[in-house]
Every structure is written in structure tokens, then in C-alpha cells.
Amino acid sequence: MKEFALMMIGAALVNNVILARFLGLCSFMGVTTRVDTAAGMGLATTFVITVSSMADWAVQTYLLDAYGLGFLRTVTFILIIASAVQFTEMTIKKVSPTLFQMLGIYLPLITTNCAVLGVALLLVEGRMGFLSATMFAFASSVGYSLVMIIFAGLRERLVLADVPRLFAGPPIAFIVAGMLAMAFMGFSGIATS
């Protein structure tokens, strides 16, 4: 139980997908102009990561490993992720057309969000059991969503600031991201103790 908790904290905070592993940066910069959009993106990505990781784990264990097809891993994973994204897209379009509109191109682009494939590959590398793989994927995506929401909050305030022309736009956003990453470094060492 304690191991689970530590692993989840580690995946969510210490080795945060965005701030420590630098995965999923395109959506991190792209859809964090408003908190509700970022939250929607976080939710969608959480769903995709969790579901596709479960499926990936199953395929890896029962198909790829069982028949020695390891070289097909990336292709099959992408196939699964793409399907999960398609499904999510349909669901969001049905449930919240506004969110669908706000997420725009970034929704189908979850397919190529490296955070999704990254998490799947990480848990395969880690040789985890099904439960811990699922937990790991879920915690990672929660960490992703958390950072997305925090960053969106910061950017909502940033648009109100008189940022000098030199830094206005992406530069200051990256500076903020850097400072956020610095703050998250405070967590380092938690999961290892």
C-alpha cells in the first residue's frame, strides 16, 4: 500500500510528466490560456492515458511479449492511443460542444501528445503489474492535469500583466514554466526515501 502511494506521488509530483520529464509540452503551451480549457484538456488526456495504458499493458503482456513481437510496440501503442483519442473526441463532442470547440486542434493531437506514448513506454520499461501500471498511468496523468491547471491559472493572470515587449508572449510563459519546474523540484527525493 505504501509503495503504491509513494509511486503515485512520485509519478504525479516528483517526476511530473511536464515539469520533470518535459513531455506533452505542446499542449502545455497550447491550451493553457484558460483554466477551464486546461481542465478539460487534462480530463481528456487523463482518460486517454489511463485507458490506453491499460490496453497497452494488456497488448504488451499478452501479445507482444507472448509472441516475441516487441518490435511492433510503437505501432500498436499508437494504434491504441489513436483509437482512444477518437473515442474521447466523439464523447466530448457529444457531451460538451463548447469544450470541443475550445480544445480545437489540440484534441485530435492528443494522439501525438508525447505524454501519452511516454507514459505507456515508461510503464512497459518499468515492468509493472497491471494494477500498478494503471495506477502509475493515472497518477502521471493527474500530475499532468494538475500542472496544466496551475499553469493556466498563472497565464490567466499573466495576460493582465504589463510584460515588457521583450518578454511578452511565449518567452514569459516559458520563464513561468521554468519557475514552476523549479518549485516542483522541492518535491524531489520524496518517493525515494
Binding site: 497488448v59 501479445l63 509472441y67 513481437l69 518490435f71 511492433l72 505501432v75 500498436t76 494504434l79 491504441i80
Partner: peptide, 8 residues
């Protein structure tokens, strides 16, 4: 491999 991918 072809079969499994196709099936998936």
C-alpha cells in the same frame, strides 16, 4: 505480426 495488427 501482420495478423495481430490486422486483428487489432
Amino acid at each position: 505480426s501482420v495478423g495481430s495488427l490486422a486483428a487489432m
